[in-house]
Amino acid sequence: MSEPSVWTKLKMGALMGGGVGLTIGFLFGSWSIMQHGAGPRGVLSTLSKTMLSSAATFGFFLSIGSVIRNDSPILEAAHLQLVAPTPAVRSRAEGFQLMRARWEEERRRAASSRP
């Protein structure tokens, strides 16, 4: 099986964000109407505007987030080839040896750059 394309992930993120945004817009819009009243536009217009603006905002950001989190195995393999694996934890003796080797390298460079 192949992974979904970037375009498919973008659409899925937009649809999920739209659904979440509609729900949150309904909840907050209903609460706002109950608390402050519908205003001059009426209940349905106020609620639909709140729901649609919330859906658009959530859909936009979730679609971008879905594309950013595109964990392609091809990109990961390329990244692993470029980055040399280094141990996360070294012993004190290994760290000391590495530090000494770097100091010696710096001394050699400084000595060779002097006229």
Rank of each mutant, 00 (worst) to 15 (best):
P4K: 04
E3A: 07
G18W: 04
S66K: 07
G39C: 05
I33M: 02
V67L: 09
E76Q: 15
L22Q: 06
L10W: 11
E105G: 04
M12G: 01
P85A: 14
V20S: 09
M1F: 10
K11C: 07
E3T: 03
V67M: 15
V67A: 11
H36G: 00
A111Y: 01
F28N: 09
L15D: 02
G19Q: 04
Q81K: 15
S45R: 06
T86E: 14
I33H: 01
S32T: 08
M12S: 09
S32P: 00
A14V: 12
S91P: 04
A38P: 00
I24E: 05
E104I: 06
D71I: 08
L22K: 07
V67S: 05
A14K: 00
S63V: 07
G18M: 11
F58C: 15
T86H: 09
V83K: 13
Q35K: 13
P73I: 08
I74M: 10
F28Q: 13
V20H: 03
L75V: 13
R107Q: 09
F28A: 09
V43K: 04
S113C: 03
K11D: 00
F26N: 00
T57R: 06
A93D: 14
F28T: 14
F60R: 03
I68V: 15
E94F: 02
G37I: 01
V67H: 04
M12V: 07
A78I: 12
L44E: 11
E94K: 10
E106W: 11
L10P: 01
G21S: 05
S72W: 06
S30Y: 07
M1T: 09
F60V: 08
P4F: 03
R92N: 07
E3N: 05
G19D: 03
I64E: 06
R69M: 15
R108M: 08
S45E: 14
S32C: 02
K49N: 08
F28W: 06
A88I: 12
D71G: 06
M51T: 03
R41V: 07
S2A: 10
E106T: 07
P115F: 02
V6I: 12
S30R: 01
G19C: 13
E94I: 02
P4H: 03
L27G: 09
N70E: 11
E106R: 14
A38L: 00
R102I: 01
Q81Y: 09
F26M: 09
S66N: 15
H36I: 00
V43M: 12
A56H: 02
V43R: 03
L22R: 05
S5K: 06
P87T: 09
G13F: 03
E94R: 11
H79Y: 11
T57E: 04
L62C: 13
R102Y: 03
S5G: 12
R41A: 13
V83P: 01
H36Q: 04
L22A: 14
S30T: 15
G25T: 03
R108W: 03
M16G: 08
G42Y: 05
K9M: 06
L47C: 02
T50Q: 14
G13V: 05
R41Y: 10
W31H: 02
S112F: 01
R69A: 15
N70C: 08
A88R: 14
F96M: 12
I64W: 13
L82M: 11
E106Q: 10
S32I: 01
